[in-house]
Design a protein around this nucleic acid. Structure first.
Lengths: 220, 220
DNA sequence: GCTCTCGAAAGTGTCAACAAATCCGCCGCG
DNA sequence: CGCGGCGGATTTGTTGACACTTTCGAGAGC
């Protein structure tokens, strides 16, 4: 658990620590299965163990860590089976959201999506995998947001976060960016054309093919 | 916040308090918008404020309460708009789960569902709304469980819990039990017959008509 | 009578210390 | 050489105390 901490902005309560811990987990500085040491974290964060424990409990409620009595909390470990389940869930919600987004599309939203698509294309051509990955997340998040269902958006975000627990971002996108982006374009076209049903189907397939790409990368 | 506490079973850590608080919220002993008083809860639970605060943080992570700095945490208040969103989400997941359940049905599972159906019918005939409500929850939960997707089951349970925040169980089922149970039977038949697509459609409609029944009961 | 200010009361945020459980290395025994 | 158990060290669980913020009511002033 080698840890570096970012500067603290808000002096509001120790909800700050929650963000910090989430970042540590999602960025892979603490790995799945690893234990969170209260004393160490307290020292690093410059506080006492109280706020640390409370922040850890928030993560417990979010399901990012699992507590074991008298032994501490461990970063959740995702099995392949769980990953499959989460992907199914994600496909379901993404498909639903995209169909809604098609119904609720506005010119402003269309522009946002178009811009993201262009940027992704540029990133793909330039071979910038990290950049593409980030834009990819934002494209999906935007579509989900445009469904105007915060509950769905939250669950979707949770799925994405948990998938981070399984595999780090810099997994080999280089070869797959092009194909992925073709699918994005197809979804976008269907949404813009107002063909909600088709968009939904494409969105579900897109998530499934993303899962497939991840599975293949596991064999390497 | 008039509170009565049940006997404590496990002597393992203050995760016990989480269950206790959840029960207080779901049973309506503390109402949406109300503040959770740490000192009072500590006294009632027979512990100090530390474990109480930690339990409250778990609820925060689960989204059941929202914290306000220096003012405490408040039980989440669900608006009608949010309720609609949650119902949409619930319909989506329930439909998905039922289709899967149709594919994964076993004789043992079929028997469990059939038994629940019979019990519900009996409860409906006897006009026992509370009993029916409880069996109804179990019937839905069983179907969701039979989809073999724990992530989906968890999200579904969260939706149901949050809907509890909106309206108490003893809302008037008496007149609606019969109709509700007809829908249950139809879903069951489709699942048993292996007609997943039809079952899914029926399941989605069932949740939507449940929402409709709730909306109508709001006008009274 | 109304408003503003001040101060006490209540409640949350934080900390350091203590109690209990678990982990780990060492020693003795078979 | 392997195995079991016995401390010591580490780490979590819990507590009470203290600081700071917010709330609310009483009283002065207009």
């Amino acid at each position: 658990m080698a840890v570096t901490v970012r500067a603290r902005s808000s002096r509001l309560l120790a909800a700050h620590i929650v963000e910090e811990l989430k970042h540590l987990i999602e960025s892979g500085q603490v790995k799945p299965g690893e234990r969170l040491n209260e004393a160490t974290l307290a020292e690093v964060m410059g506080t006492s163990r109280g706020p640390i424990r409370e922040a850890i409990r928030v993560l417990t409620g979010m399901g990012l860590v699992t507590p074991v009595p008298n032994r501490g909390v461990f970063v959740r470990r995702i099995t392949v089976a769980e990953m499959m389940e989460i992907y199914e869930m994600r496909a379901l919600i993404f498909g639903f959201a995209v169909e809604r987004a098609a119904e609720l599309l506005t010119p402003a939203r269309r522009r946002i999506l178009a811009t993201l698509l262009d940027q992704m294309e540029a990133a793909a051509k330039a071979g910038r995998g990290g950049r593409y990955y980030e834009l990819n997340l934002r494209f999906h998040a935007a579509l989900v947001e445009f469904a105007n269902n915060r509950r769905a958006a939250r669950v979707y975000a949770e799925c994405v976060n948990e998938l981070h627990l399984f595999r780090r971002p810099p997994f080999n996108y280089a070869a797959k960016m092009q194909r992925s982006n073709v699918e994005h374009r197809a979804i976008f076209d269907a949404v813009v054309a107002g063909r909600g049903g088709e968009a939904r189907h494409l969105a579900e397939e897109h998530v499934r093919s993303g899962r497939q790409r991840l599975l293949e990368s596991l064999d390497e």
